[in-house]
Design a protein around this nucleic acid. Structure first.
Ligand code: ATP
Length: 674
DNA sequence: AGACTGAACGTTTTT
DNA sequence: CGTTCAGTCT
């Protein structure tokens, strides 16, 4: 069979993974070993061999970008044969299921999904009289909701109940609801669960280490008939614990799925030997992991380089100069960082040097004020009970409906148990200010007009009508400086143009509710600028990793939380994105809410950076990471202080176990920084 | 109601 | 530093 020729590209282990189609399989392997490639080839193999039809296959990912990339990869191999495969994030899968069955869990079909900003608004309005911070409260609420904590204080419980009630009333779900309601649907209606469990003959999960417990439950539900799960992952790349991911789930795979087959891949195809060496060095400092071998046949390559800078401008300029003087296309380069705030200086300097770039993620397109305004109108047309959207739309542009007026509307709505929109007309007779009454009438007329348009017009035409009928452009120009107004106008134009792809309003609202970034506005042949989180799963010939300072990477909040190992995994993920060249950059000072003096990241020391250069020699590799007097932790002997290091032998005075001499080649120690 | 002011404040990652 | 908030004025 000719179509199976693609299997020749794989090594023996990889092929074994592809060919093991029945039963639970886990591929546990380090970065760049071809896990995602194996997963996509396995999907292709199943279809080519006609083991199942495309609608019987599902592939789950954790980010939209990963889902998009996988769709693209599979389409390349299979063309239209792949069209009915479900390739989604967990959230998008749940949304797709719930759209079919919303009424069964107590929602109308046109429910909307609230993002963090919308959640904020609800929380803020609940606690507005209390002396609490909305961000902290929301975090705690969500931890409770996703069952990471078991109980709440009575005060928080009250807030939580109010929050849930509002969501329900507004016909809205948050991200967690998507998954919880799907679980509820499955348990209330076993026949629906059975339908999907039977439908999905083969279930694939990429980046399995990012699974949280609720997602794990969902998987279990979908596996009751066929039990064909194919999961790939790497606990060293687990970087989403803040949203509940627990890499113990991947480490427990064998226990969870009896007679599971575990396949280890050891050859890295992505990076040069030198890059891989640094990655292997640093990850060994983590204690909570399964030790893995990772080697490569790729050439030694260019030595990774550390860039030392006085400040972030020098950092950005150095990078710009390297890019400009290179013969490579712009798209070969990526600039990665721990926190979004670091992109600013890069952007400024790239603009100055006329280097084209895409900022991926970051201050998201959909989060800009003008875009959110328009989306509020569109969402409200789709679901007039969406009170959060109404609250935004009703007074943008200003119609004289301020806080006092809106409080009346809210009160009427609550008393009659109707939505804010339905309360507008009845509220009129309680409002005395002429201007406010006129404003509401204006809004009602406008909105009815828009509702009518929505019956016949495309999403794009509808958006144009909204802009026209609300005089939105004039509103911007009146209120903002010309510079900002132009920017906003351009954004609106871009947004409107991006609406071409939607056939109807439902498609649009559904799509933006789980999609956070606008892939449409990505330009070709550009340097990619993004956080390490966004870069996971991607690869670039040349990677610049910036902001390698203590308190940035590792981030100070993680250090406080005792989450150093996760920060180290982030560093590992970042390094392993590089195929050929790697630049590691830090600054002595940085502008971050005022100029700050910073210390070089401890991770640079861990990769063997000492006295201004990276040490490549093998034996001292191991010893240079500790020095006399360091505090270290041993998994058996506990905490101790280093007395002496000779070649690869380390002598430690342990607090509870006396003096020991250990071989650095075999022992795993964690350094504790004072 | 809304524009304007100065003070306070916050600082991680994403579906 | 830039954003947001509370308070004041029109
Ligand atoms: N057998 C192979 N022969 C040649 N190239 C391969 C082989 N397997 C994988 N590759 C290449 O190695 C690179 C990394 O593959 P892939 O992205 O699938 O790795 P991964 O294990 O998913 O990495 P990560 O864990 O970082 O996401 C890709 O460019 C892929 O094409």
């Amino acid at each position: 069979m000719n179509i199976l020729r693609f299997l020749d590209e794989l090594n023996d282990k990889q092929r074994e993974a592809v060919l093991t189609t029945e039963g639970p399989v886990l591929v546990l392997a380090g970065a760049g070993s071809g896990k995602t490639k194996v997963l996509t080839y396995r999907v292709a193999y199943i279809l080519a061999k006609k083991l199942a039809d495309s609608e019987n296959i599902i592939a789950l990912t954790f980010t939209n970008k990963a889902a998009g990339e996988m769709k693209e990869r599979i389409r390349k191999i299979l063309g239209s044969l792949s069209k009915d495969i479900w390739i989604h994030t967990f959230h998008a899968m749940c949304l797709r299921i719930l759209k079919q069955h919303a009424e069964k869990v107590g929602y109308p079909k046109n429910f909307v999904v609230y993002d963090r900003d919308d959640q904020f608004r609800i929380v803020r309005s609940i606690i507005k009289d209390k002396d609490l911070k909305a961000g902290e409260v929301l975090d705690i609420l969500m931890e409770y909701k996703s069952k990471r904590i078991d109980n709440l204080s009575s005060e928080y419980m009250e807030i939580y109940n109010a929050y849930q009630e509002r969501l329900k009333k507004y016909r809205a779900m948050d991200f967690e609801d998507l998954m919880l309601n799907t679980l509820e649907l499955f348990s209330k209606y076993p026949e629906i669960r059975d339908y999907y469990a039977k439908k999905f003959l083969y279930i694939h999960v990429d980046e399995y280490q990012d699974t949280n417990h609720i997602q794990y439950q969902l998987l279990k539900n979908l596996l009751i008939y066929h039990n064909n799960i194919f999961a790939v992952g790497d606990e060293d790349q687990s970087i989403y614990s803040f949203r509940g991911a627990d890499f113990r789930i991947i480490l427990n795979f064998e226990k969870d799925f009896p007679n599971a087959k575990i396949i280890f891949l050891e050859q890295n195809y992505r990076s040069t030997k030198k890059i891989l060496k640094l990655a292997n060095r640093v990850i060994k400092f983590n204690y909570e992991r399964r030790d893995k071998v990772l080697w490569t046949n790729n050439p030694d390559g260019k030595d990774p380089e550390v860039l030392e800078n006085h400040d972030e401008i020098e950092e950005a300029e150095k990078i710009a100069k390297i890019i400009v003087s290179s013969k490579r296309p712009y798209s070969d380069f990526a600039v990665l960082f721990r926190i979004n705030a670091l992109s600013k200086s890069i952007e400024e300097v790239f603009n100055k040097y006329k280097i084209p770039y895409n900022v991926i993620g970051g201050k998201k397109f959909y989060e800009r004020r003008e875009i959110k305004d328009l989306i509020a109108y569109l969402r409200l047309i789709y679901n007039p009970k969406d009170n959060i959207s109404l609250e935004r739309a009703i007074n943008t542009p200003p119609r004289g409906i301020g806080e006092t007026t809106f409080e009346i509307i809210k009160k009427i709505a609550e008393e009659n148990n109707v939505s804010y929109y339905e309360a507008l007309r009845p509220a009129l007779k309680f409002i005395n200010r002429k201007k406010a009454v006129e404003g509401i009438i204006d809004f009602l007329n406008l909105f009815e007009k828009l509702l009518n348009y929505s019956k016949t017009l495309s999403v794009k035409e509808l958006a144009k009508k909204i802009i026209l009928e609300t005089n939105y452009i004039e509103y911007i120009q009146k209120n903002e400086s010309t510079q900002l107004a132009r920017e906003r106008r351009e954004n609106i134009e871009e947004f409107v143009n991006s609406l071409d792809i939607y056939n109807n309003l439902e498609e649009f609202v559904e799509d933006i509710s789980v999609k956070t970034e606008n892939e449409i506005d990505l330009k070709n042949n550009c340097v990619s600028v993004m956080t390490i989180h966004s870069a996971k799963g991607l690869e670039f010939p040349v990677v610049f990793l910036i902001g390698l300072e203590d308190d940035i990477l590792p981030h100070h909040l993680s250090i406080e939380e005792g989450n150093l190992e996760e920060e180290r995994r982030l560093f590992y993920v970042a390094i392993t994105r590089a195929k050929e060249e790697l630049y590691l950059s830090y600054c002595k000072t940085r502008f971050l809410r005022g100029r700050k003096e910073l210390q070089i990241s401890r991770f640079l020391e861990e990769i063997g950076y000492k006295d201004g250069k990276i040490i490549w020699d093998n034996i001292s590799d191991l010893s240079l990471t500790y020095k006399k007097g360091d505090l270290i932790r041993h998994h058996k002997f506990g905490i101790g202080r280093v007395l002496e290091i000779k070649r690869n032998l380390i002598t430690v005075q342990f607090n509870e176990h006396g003096v020991k001499t250990l071989s650095l080649e075999f022992v795993k120690l964690e350094r504790i920084v004072k």
